[in-house]
């Protein structure tokens, strides 16, 4: 059977605006991914734990509160601490341009702001996870 791509969609931190995360989760499902949706107010430890148990290929974080520079590095650290440094980490939400280099530097590969077409995210995941041609 063909391997399914599994994606965790989570909202770290305290803001409760999950409309965007749900739209993305739904679009990823419609693109044929298995999406594990964990809901709002997740701690970095909870997100890393869920990512491990669900053995996901991708972790998508939605942050609209402006706390991304505090939260995203902690999630990434928690993932690495569990040996999940290979997981593709994406961030969506309101991320000012000046923060992008710093997030890229800690290994966040994709950053998607408001107005991103969901297909763009789907294509990005496919491209990043494509097995190198044997």
């Amino acid at each position: 059977m063909k391997r399914k791509i599994r994606v965790l969609v989570a909202k770290p931190g305290l803001d409760g605006h999950d409309r965007g995360a749900k739209v993305v989760a739904r679009s990823l499902r419609d693109a044929g991914f298995e999406v594990i949706y964990t809901g709002i107010r997740q701690t970095p430890a909870m997100i890393a734990e869920a990512a491990l148990q669900e053995d996901v290929d991708v972790v998508g974080l939605s942050v609209l509160s402006g706390a991304h520079m505090a939260l995203v590095p902690k999630v990434k650290e928690a993932l690495v601490a569990q040996g999940m440094d290979d997981v593709l980490v994406l961030v969506g939400g309101i991320i000012p341009n000046e923060d992008v280099p710093a997030l890229n530097a800690i290994g966040v590969k994709g950053i998607f702001g408001p107005g991103t077409a969901t297909q763009e995210i789907v294509d990005f995941i496919h491209k990043e996870l494509a097995e190198p041609a044997a």
Binding site: A25, R29, E34, I36, Y37, G39
Partner: peptide, 8 residues
């Protein structure tokens, strides 16, 4: 695809 939401 699937949307798995029981963890919520």
């Amino acid at each position: 695809g699937a949307l798995l939401g029981d963890r919520v």
